[in-house]
Amino acid sequence: MTATTRRRPLEISALLRFERQAIAAAVNLLEDRRPERQEQARALLDELAVLPVPAHVVGITGPPGVGKSSLISRLIARAAQAGKRVGVVAVDPSSKVSGGALLGDRGRMHVPPHAPVFVRSFAARDRLGGLSREAFSAVFLLRHLCDVILIETVGVGQSETDIAHIADTVVLVVQPFSGDLLQFIKAGVMEVPDILAVNKADDTTLARKAVAEVTAALSLERRSWARPVLAVSATTDLHIDALDAAIAAHYHHLRTAHVLDTRRAEQMVEWVVSEVMYELGRVGLAALGGSTGIHTLLERQPATWGALRRLAALVQRVEYRVTGEL
């Protein structure tokens, strides 16, 4: 492979044809922190921003060891069977000491080799258990290319909120016989999920007890979407069809209740705000009129990444001049 072919600019058409090598290259680009590559990444995002978003973005979260990856594996199989294009984003924590990370979830996912399934693992890097900037960007890219996106994060508090900033539907996975449930209820994590799955429910007595506990925890509130609590088993494929159906039903609910577009517009604003904060800081955000300003900006002009980048470069030059003069 020569350098010239590898540096070939990414063709949107290849991405839209779901050529996985092109998708991988695009995600590599989004991850690349070198200035010239960041420039190209922004250009790519701008090109995509005007395209439709066919994907249903599903977040799967929960404590370590509850079987999220195996569950995702089952959902991948169903989506692939239905001929859907699937994107999977798996997030693992990074080590604070070394900066390194072990990305082990992929090993637990069975990915049919010839089906249109793209799986990418991310280290949480500086976001404890949550989604890194790079993972966020990747989801925003994949939204245009996939029919369904499954995001796996380890639920340790922070990530539940992170996942709500990016997913249309959030599934919280718990297991029976753990003290997690009580912790979640206390920590207010129960606000976030749209669906609750009690995995490892082969032991029916324990599972029934867990389902009852969760249902009780949820019953206090009234919502337009009655949040289902399902006992499933990824190992034996028990009630995974029901989970799959519940996920689809929630998507249907979002669309018929006309909240999907609002939710996504909010997510977009949130993301741009955090990017502005990253590039320009608080002052920069204020100069753009805060969240409200960003909202208005996005309504007028969805493809703003290039502009933001140019703005950032401008600020950097100002900063340079100031330091230079001082």
């Binding site: 990074s94 080590s95 000491v97 070394s98 900066g99 390194g100 990370a101 072990l102 990305l103 082990g104 992929r106 090993g107 693992s121 280290a123």
Partner: peptide, 11 residues
């Protein structure tokens, strides 16, 4: 991992 790499470990 401890040397600072991101390791996809597939088992």
């Amino acid at each position: 991992r401890d040397a600072g790499m991101e390791v996809v470990y597939e088992g």
